[in-house]
């Protein structure tokens, strides 16, 4: 077999973009939508769970990483599982080393390093973007990390199918005074408006007064109010 240079993927396309990472972002956009919102006293992450066949149990989309951290994401769920496991390992390693809960910023740095390592070599970048919510000494935190390894910090994120449209709706409807139920109802309405009638949504939230990330599953909009009072 002779040497064929075309067998090797180029990292950068003609425009200077990392083509493999761009493809990974496309994979993320094919996944069902995930949303994260941060308020002064709490943060919520939510992800739409795709309807499955009758006898099949839908897979989890929101994960508890440590007491004080949760994560969700869109894209290839198996990639997400690996990242969740990485985060769980990091937070427990930190507890062993320092006898204290890991701060969210350092955890996000670690996740971002995990993503970034798959952009350096001709391997498949992670086909998932994650939204991380947690609580530490600096308060309630919300981050998004992309397949490129870039981390964003802010009050509202959306990744996955129709996430651009969802962000437009969130930007006009977001109000920092919302309570938890209002926020969850808001997320449900955003998911509905992006073309998913009566969606099943898994939500997780953390509040500033209690360092425990809590999960719920919501079926349709009417369910939201009853199921989420903490």
């Amino acid at each position: 077999m002779s040497f064929d240079p075309s067998r090797f993927q180029k990292f950068y396309g003609p425009e200077g973009r990392m083509t493999l990472v761009d493809r990974a972002l496309e994979a993320v956009m094919r996944g069902s939508i995930s949303i994260g919102l941060r308020f002064p006293k709490y943060a919520v992450v939510a992800s739409m769970v795709k309807p499955t066949r009758k006898l099949m149990k839908p897979s989890d989309k929101v994960f508890i990483v440590d007491d004080h951290v949760g994560v969700t994401g869109s894209g290839y769920i198996s990639d997400l599982y690996r990242i969740v496991d990485h985060m769980r390992l990091e937070t427990q390693r930190h507890r062993l080393l320092f006898d204290a809960a890991m701060d969210i910023g350092s955890l996000v740095d670690s996740v971002s390093g995990y993503f970034h390592s798959y952009t350096l070599y001709p391997v498949r970048p992670q086909g998932v973007a994650v939204i991380i919510a947690g609580l530490d000494k600096l308060g309630v935190q919300l981050y998004q990390v992309d397949p490129s390894g870039t981390a964003f910090y802010g009050d509202a994120f959306a990744v996955g199918a129709n996430s651009d449209k969802a962000l437009d709706i969130i930007e006009t409807g977001y109000n920092p005074d919302m309570n938890l139920d209002e926020a969850i109802n808001f997320i449900v309405s955003v998911v509905e408006k992006t073309g998913n009638p009566e969606p099943t949504i898994q939500v997780g939230y953390i509040t500033a007064d209690k360092p425990f990330f809590t999960r719920h599953t919501i079926n349709g909009k009417t369910d939201a109010i009853n199921k989420t009072s903490p």
Partner: peptide, 10 residues
């Protein structure tokens, strides 16, 4: 890295 100091316990 994390923006606040280590405690004595840590």
């Amino acid at each position: 890295r994390r923006g606040y100091p280590m405690s004595v316990a840590e």
